[in-house]
C-alpha cells in the first residue's frame, strides 16, 4: 500500500528512546519513546509547556544554541543517531529542515533566501546562474509562491506578507532535499486565510517529506495530520491515528484535553 517505505520498522523517520532533556536543572522531557513514520504528517498537541516544541527543537539540535541544554537517550533520524559523537551538526540540519512559529526569512532578497541553504551545503562547487534559477523556480513552485513573486525575486524577503514569508521559509528548505521537515506552530502568526493556504501546502508536501508539526490548534491537528501525538508535562500520553485519537482516545487525559476541559 505504501511503495516508498519498506516494512513498518524500516519506515521510521524519527525514533527516540528514553529521551530526557533538561534546561539547566529543569527537566522538560521525561523518557520520551516515539516512533514517527516516514512520509506522513504527524502532529504533536498538548497544553503550553508540555514539551512538544522542546522535542521538535531537539530533533534539529537547534536547542543547543541556548547552551544550557542537557540530553540523555537517543534520537535516531533515518536510522542514524544524530547525537552520536561523530555526527556533524551541519549534516544533521541539512537532513532535517525546520520551520519556526514566526516566519523568519533572512533580510536578503527572496532569491537569496531560497538559495541560502543550497549555497551553504554546496560551498565548494560553483552554482551556475541557470542552475540557481532552476532551483529558485522549483522551490517556489512547490510552495505555490512562484506566480506571486517571480517578478520581484530581487526584492527583500522581509517585505512579503506573513503568509508568503512562511511559504518562503518552507521553500528555502527544499533545495537541499531534507528528509524531515519540522514545523513549530507554523500557522500561529497567520490570519485564517494564511493558515488555510499554508495548511494546504503542508498537505501537498505529504509523501515527499516526513513532516512533524507542533500545533496548539486541535482543529488543525485533526484536519492536517495522519498521526497524532498527545503530550503532557514532558511525557508522551498517547500516539495513534489522528482519526482514532479524536474519536476514541485511550486515555482520560487525552479526552479531557481534546474536549477542552483544560489546556
Amino acid at each position: 500500500m505504501n511503495n516508498t517505505t519498506g516494512s513498518q520498522d524500516a519506515g521510521l523517520a524519527i525514533h527516540t528512546e528514553k529521551l530526557n532533556l533538561w534546561y539547566g536543572t529543569f527537566q522538560a522531557l521525561f523518557d520520551v519513546d516515539l516512533k514517527i513514520k516516514q512520509g506522513i504528517i504527524t502532529s504533536m498537541i498538548g497544553p503550553s509547556g508540555c514539551g512538544k516544541s522542546t522535542f521538535l527543537r531537539s530533533v534539529n539540535r537547534i536547542n543547543e544554541r541556548l547552551g544550557y541544554v542537557r540530553i540523555t537517550g537517543a534520537i535516531d533520524v533515518m536510522g542514524e543517531n544524530i547525537y552520536a559523537p561523530g555526527v556533524e551538526l551541519v549534516q544533521v540540519r541539512k537532513q532535517i529542515g525546520m520551520v519556526f512559529q514566526r516566519p523568519n526569512p533572512l533580510p536578503i532578497s527572496i532569491r537569496e533566501n531560497v538559495l541560502f541553504g543550497h549555497r551553504i551545503h554546496n560551498a565548494a562547487t560553483k552554482t551556475s546562474k541557470s542552475e540557481a534559477d532552476d532551483i529558485v523556480e522549483g522551490a517556489l513552485k512547490t510552495v505555490l509562491l512562484w506566480d506571486k513573486v517571480k517578478d520581484r525575486l530581487d526584492t527583500k524577503a522581509t517585505g512579503l506578507s506573513l503568509e508568503e514569508q512562511q511559504k518562503l521559509c518552507i521553500a528555502r528548505l527544499l533545495p537541499v532535499k531534507p528528509g524531515v521537515l519540522l514545523m513549530d506552530e507554523p500557522c500561529s502568526a497567520l490570519d485564517p486565510k494564511g493558515t488555510e493556504a499554508v495548511e494546504e501546502l503542508i498537505w501537498e508536501l505529504r509523501g515527499q517529506y516526513t513532516i512533524l508539526i507542533v500545533t496548539h490548534n486541535m482543529a488543525q491537528a485533526r484536519r492536517a495530520s495522519e498521526e497524532c501525538i498527545f503530550m503532557l508535562m514532558g511525557k508522551v500520553v498517547e500516539h495513534s491515528d489522528t482519526g482514532k485519537m479524536f474519536v476514541t482516545p485511550e486515555n482520560k487525559e487525552t479526552s479531557d484535553y481534546i474536549e477542552g476541559r483544560y489546556g
Partner: peptide
C-alpha cells in the same frame, strides 16, 4: 530569529555572522 533561521539550515557560526549578521 535571523541567526536561528540560518543556524537551523546548517550554517556554521562564521557563515551566520558573515552572511546574515554583518549585512
Amino acid at each position: 530569529p535571523y541567526r536561528e533561521a540560518a543556524e537551523a539550515m546548517g550554517a556554521t557560526r562564521w557563515q551566520v555572522i558573515y552572511k546574515v549578521v554583518l549585512p
